[in-house]
Design a protein around this nucleic acid. Sequence first.
DNA 1: GTATGCTATTTTGTATACAATATAGAGCTC
DNA 2: GAGCTCTATATTGTATACAAAATAGCATAC
Lengths: 234, 234
Amino acid sequence: MDYPNLEQKRDLETLAYQQLKMAIVKGIYPPGYQITEEIVAAQLNVSRSPVRTAIKRLQTEGFLEKRSNRRVYVTLGDYKRTINTLYVRKALEGMAAYQAAVNRTDEDITVIKRLISEMGYYYKEDDSFKILQMGIEVHRVIYMASKNDLLTQIGINALEQEAVFSYRSLNNDSMRASRSYREHMAIMNAVLEQEAELAEQKARDHVDRLIERVQAAAPDNAEGNSGLLLSLPQ
Amino acid sequence: MDYPNLEQKRDLETLAYQQLKMAIVKGIYPPGYQITEEIVAAQLNVSRSPVRTAIKRLQTEGFLEKRSNRRVYVTLGDYKRTINTLYVRKALEGMAAYQAAVNRTDEDITVIKRLISEMGYYYKEDDSFKILQMGIEVHRVIYMASKNDLLTQIGINALEQEAVFSYRSLNNDSMRASRSYREHMAIMNAVLEQEAELAEQKARDHVDRLIERVQAAAPDNAEGNSGLLLSLPQ
DNA sequence: GTATGCTATTTTGTATACAATATAGAGCTC
DNA sequence: GAGCTCTATATTGTATACAAAATAGCATAC
C-alpha cells in the first residue's frame, strides 16, 4: 500500500473513497464506466470490504449510480441532470454569498482580496484557462466564508459533480473568460462590502448565465447524451 | 427476518437502512444515543455487514455522526446546526416553490388542491396538531412538483433531519397552527397560480419565521444543548 | 486524593468464504 | 435467421473470523 502523502494515516475505507473519487473527478474513470468492487480492490491492493464502503458512499453522494439492478457505473450526466444541478447551485450559492457577506471574518477578507488580485493578474495576462479554473476557487472560498458547514458540504458536492458531468462545451475563449472574470469579481466585491442582498443576486445571476449557456448548447436533443463534454464549473 | 409490508423484496442493506433511519426519525434512538453495529445487527437479526453499510450511509447523510474517532452516535442537533439547516431549507424550498410554480402538472394540481381542502378542514376543526403535521406534506409535495430530482432529494433530507434535531419548543398552540396554516396556504396558492416569484418569496418568508422563532427560543445559551426538544418541521 | 500506566473489554476495520442473482452467450429449435 | 432456453460466468450480497485500535476501569505509586 502506498500512502500518497503519508502525513496522516487513514483507514482503508477513507483511502479507497478518496482515491476512487479522485479517479472519477479527474476522468480516469469516465462517465458511464462500469465500476466493480473486485477490480478497484485489486488496483488499490486492498480487499473488497473497504472498496465496497467507498462505492456505496459515492453512490449516495451521486458520483456513482446503480443501473440494471446490479451494476454500478460512473454517473452519466445528461442534459436534465446538468440543469437540475445548476438550479441547486443557484439556490445554494446565492444563499452562501448572502451569508458570506454577513459572516466573513478578517481572514476571509484577506483570502478574497488575494483571489481578486490574482485573478486580476491573469486577466491582464489574458490567460483564459487560468481565469476559468479559478472560478471554482471563488465559490469554494465563499462557501467557507458563509460559516455554514451544511451549506458548504452540500454546495461543494454539487460543484464537484458538475465538474464531472457538465454538459457544456469547452471553448475557453477569452470572451467567456472575460465574462467569468466580471461576474466573479462582482460577487466577491459585494461580499467584501457586506452587501448581502447584492451578493446573493450576483451569485444567482452568474448561475443563470451558465443555465442559459447550457440551454443554448443543447436545445433540441435534450434527452440524449450526445454533446456531452467535460468542462470546468465556474 | 420479518418483512414489515412484504410487497417488495429488498436486500438486507436497504432494509437495515430503512429500519435504522425510521428508528432515528421516530426517536426510538434519540439524539446522542450510541449506535453499535453489533447491537443493531442483533436487533434486526442480520449480520454486521448490511448494518455497517446502513450506518455508513446514515453518516454521510448526516443522521449519525462519528465522535471520539471510533464511535457513532445519533446526531445531536445544537442551535448552530438547527440554524444552518434552516438556511439551507430557505434556499432549497424557495427554489422548489419557484420551479413547482413553473413545472407543476395537472396531477400536482390535483394533489395540492386536495391538501388545501384537507388542511382547511382541520383548520375549521381547530386541530393544531394535524395542521402542523401536514406542513411536512406540503413541502414534500412542492418538491415533487418542482420536477428536480436532485433538489427534491437534498431538500427532503434536510427536512427529515430537522424533524429529528430541531431545537424549537413544542407548544402546539393554535396561534402557531394558524400562522402555519396561512403561510402554507400562501405558498400552495402561488404555486397553483403559477406565480413563481411570489411562491419563492412566500416559501422563503415562511422559513424566515421559523428562524426567528428558533433565535427567540435560544438567544443566549446558543452553544449549549439545553433547551433541545423534538418537534415537527413546518 | 490525584495522577499515571496497565489491562481487559468494547468496537470497529479488514479479509475472505460462500450464497444468491443477474447477465451474457452459446446452442438449440422452429 | 430469429428467438428462445439453458448454462456458465460475473458480480454483488451476506456472514463470519480475526486484527487493530480505542476506551474505560482498575490498580498502583506518589
